[in-house]
């Protein structure tokens, strides 16, 4: 059981939760994730660790409440106990130094990008962050990112703030084959796939942080397997970060859709035995 310390709405349906987790706070590194089970009756879901606070012995996660479990998670108020929280899982993000690095993210991925962008910067790289949002009021963690990187650009789908278009279009407008030596991308699969396609042949090493379906997160179930360069990998233990130019994003899309109808059924289901919290 882990106590919720703070809760803040960052944008419509996007909530930041700060949760007490002393051991994870001490050990986590940028790019790693946790698995949570908000309530006794919840599913297990993976979430990227966004930040931590040594004084409060806490970690921070940012949740987009679109499914049953994410809604259950953001229903937790400060002082409430999160049923399960385990981690830190996966391998830390790959770091280099003295390079021109581009960090790209879309939607709630912007929050997940923050620790990686910060780590790249602290490791002595010049970091340009390209972040996407639906419109101006969906931008999240703007101040934190600005402080963490050398250059921050926003793209909005409706043009209400910054570049009018998506993150990959923004990248193409700002950069070419030789602008960056290394990059990190996190967000919706179509966006990561487009970023990989756009930079293929650029001589840019691009890392994509994947978020497939997962249960245990320790290499036991194999539900999170992805194909990377014709090899089967487990995202939970081999990843979550892989070479974006080698990931089979189409397969990942299909695998992540496997339970879509059932998730809808679960969301709409009124439990017979009275376990439902809504």
């Amino acid at each position: 059981m882990n106590r919720v310390l703070a809760k803040r709405e960052l944008a419509p349906l996007v909530t930041l939760l700060e949760v007490e987790a002393p051991r994870i706070q001490r050990r986590w590194k940028a790019g790693q994730f946790i698995i949570i089970r908000p309530l006794e009756t919840s599913e297990r879901i993976p979430l990227t660790i966004v930040d931590s606070n040594a004084e409060r012995q806490s970690i921070t996660m940012v949740i987009q409440a679109i499914g049953k479990t994410t809604k259950e998670a953001v229903s937790l108020e400060p002082e409430a106990l999160m049923c399960d929280l385990v981690g830190p899982l996966g391998e830390p993000a790959t770091m280099s130094k003295g390079k021109n690095v581009v960090c790209m993210a879309g939607g709630v991925g912007v929050a997940e990008l923050l620790p990686v962008a910060k780590a790249f910067h602290q490791a002595g790289n010049r970091v340009t962050a390209l972040c996407g949002a639906r419109s101006e009021n969906y931008r999240i963690l703007d101040a934190e990112l600005k402080e963490a990187v050398d250059e921050l650009h926003w793209a909005t789908d409706d043009g209400s703030f910054g570049f009018h278009g998506n993150v990959v279009q923004l990248l193409n407008s700002l950069a070419g084959p030789d602008t960056f030596q290394e990059g990190h991308v996190i967000g919706p699969i179509p966006m990561m796939k487009a970023a990989a396609e756009a930079t293929r042949g650029w001589g840019l090493k691009l890392h994509a942080s994947l978020n497939p379906v997962m249960i245990d997160g320790t290499g036991m179930c194999g539900g999170c397997r992805v194909t990377v360069g014709h090899e089967v990998k487990f995202a939970c233990v081999d990843g979550p970060e892989f070479d974006a130019h080698l990931v089979d994003f189409d397969e990942l899309t299909r695998r992540n859709r496997a339970y879509r109808e059932m998730e809808q059924e679960s969301l709409n289901h009124k439990c017979r035995v009275g376990l439902d919290i809504h």
Binding site: S42, R44, R255, A258, M262, E265, S266
Partner: peptide, 27 residues
Amino acid sequence: VGVYTANEFLTRINLMEAFKFPDAPTP
């Protein structure tokens, strides 16, 4: 999709009680 390791299949059903879905949350 639809190809499982026994570990995933059994973990979903035994540990997460998917045999009760949708009364249990994991399908």
